[in-house]
């Protein structure tokens, strides 16, 4: 059944399928991975029925494979995502994403007086901490915390 649903959008011969993205986070994933500037075909699915999650989103990227490090960047918005690598229409690898220890460039610091919000073009950098089961991003510059509920993507 799952295979037929994936075929709603054409199956890709070679490339990467990012599946089980929360339905409302697909465009953020596109942005984080820079797929808005991709040169190969990219197919998006939003509000697709999912047995596991009710609804989900997916992205199929033709002729492109990602470094695990690059894919881990999406773990903040799509911790449930699965990554499926396709070669000759066959699944060759399936993996999940993991929240990295460092997050760079993609999240805004919650502190309005942080130098990354005051000066132009200073890329943000955070250390990831897990406190009482919740995520906290510690800013490399101002050392303040951005908690999970305050995460805003650049």
């Amino acid at each position: 059944m799952e295979k037929r649903k994936e075929l709603i959008v054409s199956a890709i011969e070679n490339g990467t399928v990012i599946d089980h993205i929360p339905a409302d986070k697909v465009f953020q994933v596109v942005k984080i991975l820079g797929l808005d500037k991709a040169s190969t075909p990219v197919y998006l699915g939003i509000n697709v029925e999912s047995k596991k999650y009710g609804t989900k989103g997916f992205i199929k990227v033709s002729d492109k494979y990602f470094d695990p490090e690059e894919l881990n960047k999406i773990a903040l918005v799509a911790p449930t995502a699965s990554i499926i690598e396709i070669k000759d229409f066959e699944v060759v690898r399936k993996q999940t994403v993991q929240i990295p220890e460092r997050i760079e460039h993609i999240v805004k610091c919650f502190n309005p007086n942080c130098v990354t919000n005051k000066e132009h073009d200073i890329p943000t950098k955070f250390r990831v901490k897990h406190v009482d089961g919740k995520l906290r991003l510690v800013c490399h510059y101002c050392e303040k915390y951005t908690s999970e509920e305050n995460i805003e993507f650049i």
Binding site: N113, C114, V115, Y141, C142
Partner: peptide, 9 residues
């Protein structure tokens, strides 16, 4: 400097 994190930068 009055801006947080300016010294690290």
């Amino acid at each position: 400097n009055p801006i947080d994190g300016s010294a690290r930068l």
